[in-house]
Amino acid sequence: MKWVVAALAVTLGGCASVSELESTPETMSVISGKKPKEYADCVQQQLAESRGPLTVEPFHEGGVRLVVPQKVGDGPAAVVDINERGSGSSIKLYERLNNFPLRLGDVKTAATVCISG
C-alpha cells in the first residue's frame, strides 16, 4: 500500500524546484520564539530518520532555508524558510503536493513540533 501511495505521488507531482515550491501558497506560516538556527536544528533532528540529509542555505539576513529531499525521486519535497524576527523566527513551510490529501505528513509534523519547546 505504501508503494502505491509513493508511486502515485511521484506520478502526480513530477519534480519541482525550490522557486516553484515557493510560488505556491504556504502550507504553514507561524512565529516561533526560537532563533533560526535553533529551529532549523530541531527540524533536522525530527526528520533525521524519515528523510535524507536536509540542505541548509543562508536565507536573507540571519535567516536559514531548509530544503527537504523527497523520499522517492529527485528534487525537493518541501522548503522551510526561517527568518529572524525580534527574539525569535518567522517560519514558512512550502510543500510539494500541498493540496494532495494523501501526502506524507512528516515534514509538517516536524515543523509544528519545533515551534515551541
Rank of each mutant, 00 (worst) to 15 (best):
V56Y: 00
L12V: 11
K108L: 12
E95C: 08
L104I: 04
G62M: 07
Q70D: 08
G63P: 07
V10I: 13
G86W: 03
L12M: 11
Q44A: 09
G14S: 03
V72L: 15
M28V: 09
V18I: 13
V5E: 14
E84A: 10
R51V: 01
V64C: 03
L93K: 03
C114F: 04
I115R: 15
S90D: 13
K37L: 13
L66F: 06
G33W: 06
V113F: 12
K34H: 15
A9C: 08
P36W: 00
T27V: 10
L8H: 08
F100I: 01
E22N: 09
G86K: 12
P36D: 04
P76L: 03
D74A: 07
D41S: 13
G117C: 04
T11L: 15
L102Y: 11
S23V: 01
S23I: 00
S90Y: 08
T24I: 02
A78S: 13
I115Q: 15
F100A: 03
M28F: 11
L97P: 10
L8R: 14
D106T: 12
G63S: 05
L21Y: 10
R103K: 15
Q45L: 04
L66Y: 04
S32M: 10
S116K: 11
E49W: 04
V18M: 09
V79S: 03
V68E: 09
K35G: 08
S89H: 11
L12N: 06
S32H: 09
P36Y: 05
L54F: 00
T27L: 08
G52A: 06
K71M: 11
A110W: 02
K92T: 08
A78N: 06
L102F: 11
G13A: 09
Y94M: 00
Y94A: 01
S23C: 02
L66P: 14
E26S: 11
A48H: 12
A6I: 13
L102K: 10
P58A: 06
I91N: 07
R103F: 04
G86N: 12
R51W: 08
G62Y: 03
M28W: 04
V64N: 07
D41N: 14
G75C: 07
R65H: 01
R96S: 11
T55S: 13
T55C: 00
K108Q: 15
A77I: 02
V113A: 14
P69G: 05
A110S: 12
G62S: 05
V80N: 06
S116Y: 04
A48T: 03
V56D: 00
V56R: 15
A77M: 13
D41L: 04
A16M: 14
G117Q: 14
D41Q: 07
S32Q: 10
G88T: 09
D41T: 04
V43A: 07
G63H: 05
V30D: 09
V67P: 12
E61F: 02
A9I: 04
S116H: 09
E22Y: 00
C42T: 05
K108Y: 06
S23L: 00
S29W: 05
E49S: 14
E38G: 05
D81T: 03
D81E: 10
I31L: 11
I31H: 12
K37A: 11
